[in-house]
Design a protein around this nucleic acid. Sequence first.
DNA 1: TTGTACGCGTTATCAC
DNA 2: GTGATAACGCGTACAA
Lengths: 341, 341
Amino acid sequence: MQSQRLPTLEDVARVAGVSRATVSRVVNGVRNVDPQLHEVVWSAVEQTGYVPNRLARSLVTRRSGTVALVVSDSETHDDDPFMSRFFADPYFGRVVGGLMSVLRPAGVQLALQMVGAEGHRRLVGDLRNGQADGAVVLSLPARDPLPGLLAEARIPAVLIGRPAEPLPISYVDLANETGAALAAECLVARGCQRVSMISGPADVPASQDRITGFHRAMARHGHAWVPSAAGNFTRESGEQAMRALLAEEPDGVFVANDLMALGALLVLRDAGKRVPEDVAVIGFDDSSAALAARPALTTIRHPLEDMAAEAAKLLLARVEDPAGRVSSVIYEPTLVRRQSA
Amino acid sequence: MQSQRLPTLEDVARVAGVSRATVSRVVNGVRNVDPQLHEVVWSAVEQTGYVPNRLARSLVTRRSGTVALVVSDSETHDDDPFMSRFFADPYFGRVVGGLMSVLRPAGVQLALQMVGAEGHRRLVGDLRNGQADGAVVLSLPARDPLPGLLAEARIPAVLIGRPAEPLPISYVDLANETGAALAAECLVARGCQRVSMISGPADVPASQDRITGFHRAMARHGHAWVPSAAGNFTRESGEQAMRALLAEEPDGVFVANDLMALGALLVLRDAGKRVPEDVAVIGFDDSSAALAARPALTTIRHPLEDMAAEAAKLLLARVEDPAGRVSSVIYEPTLVRRQSA
DNA sequence: TTGTACGCGTTATCAC
DNA sequence: GTGATAACGCGTACAA
């Protein structure tokens, strides 16, 4: 049951018998300080239990020691059609984990900022006002204006996943086309003759790249036409798409993410198809779901944690030097051979 | 390429031809304002593109409009043994989603605060300094001093999961014993004679409750002894535990969470056991993993999103009225019958 | 109803 | 090296 008011620099100064300027210098480790006082001040800090007020500090330094994780969704949700899906998906957690692995050692905090189109102005304002030093952006909508706004406002920002259109903003991404091509090669090498694809939404960049990458690679091997069905990256939608594709009697199917692949596996199983003997299945992401599936999912590894960590590093560097070059880091996916193909 | 400096209240006041106090009142919706000026001021706000500086505002109001999601881990990690596990687990995402569902409509931001024992003092200080109005605490370690510290400092806080020892702090929890008992009843009703359990870590409250609840219920039906093996809530540990338990030749097994149950299912399958004919399996949590499993997992529903949402509500209420009663909300689990039992 | 003036807790720029 | 003092941007008694 301590005093309600927290000790301030002034209080510490009084106890130490110095001015608050000196205390500030000591606390912030400025060198022009008499070692004598140094001691005195620190013990006064201990004694009073002083903790610097970050708000007050940020107000003057214009540095908050915080970065924002912006989840941009831009759609208005009646109830909860998207949010619960998004957070329950391994994607979100993997990104947070990757970010934290570099942010935490750096002593930087993470603020979660879900925002729709209505909130763009406010968000940009808050960021310019110094509420956060920069932003890592998870842009979900197809043509999201937010990345452009951030670039225009010269706010240090890094996208996870390339922007829909070229923009002076840093980003990390996966070579999605390459990944899809890897899957195609594998299927072709297996001797699959009737290959189908379950894709993600047609309007998000990562999904587009997987589609074009797969089609292009298949065409290279003479398969001009690949029957496809689109899902929305959930397991349920994967089941639905697989059911629709059953009519094509495929002997191989590439699924744009593991969750949907899981759904596909279930449908195939229920349809009496053996995997991979009757139909080979390849997923995408190498999320934990892939290992848990039976048969274990052959999939394209997507090093999301590493990518998020890199995004954090890029962002911190940009905060340090805002004039630096906008850079992009593209990760190369690899094929993880397991049992489904 | 706008001016680098953002407009302040003063700038808006100049444009509107009033004092900055008036602008402040208008922006904050105080009623004593001439409708005339009201208009003038708002258009000046539009014109200048003014966005209130939350830092400055918080400094004086001592309200930040932010709550902290504190992940308390207290163990020092060499590299990353725990963090990636934790974030990849559906648990984290479900909690964030639940919190957001009430925080976002309320216009409250969420700040993620991972903190070990070294950071406790700093965290409490930051919170008392008004960096956040309150905290939702995910306390992982067995005997975590943090909840006690928060209570002592009279910081509005709500725990997800009961504290290890009684404490004047609000929390939401699941009736874990009841859930475990439900599983026991189901197994007994099936006629299982050789029942085993795969538990979580022995030192975390939720895990303990599931253990005691299960044993007690089994005892009530004459089963004094239940062979057990402990895991750490990961799928891998579930596999390990199941392998160890195979020697007991169980015809029924209760697993303390779905992820481990998934692992158990895999091991049983590889061991040539049919589920549920040879051995019935019941999981816990009803996470998305349960539906994806084959056979689909019979499990105990744990309404984590609802619980997190309730935690957010309790917290906001407490922020509003810090003198209010510390309250606990206990959710009743239910049995979700699917195919594994 | 509106404006003046002070304080929130820090850091930074000066003289000393 | 150290101590006043002016910002930082805002809310709000208090006075008008």
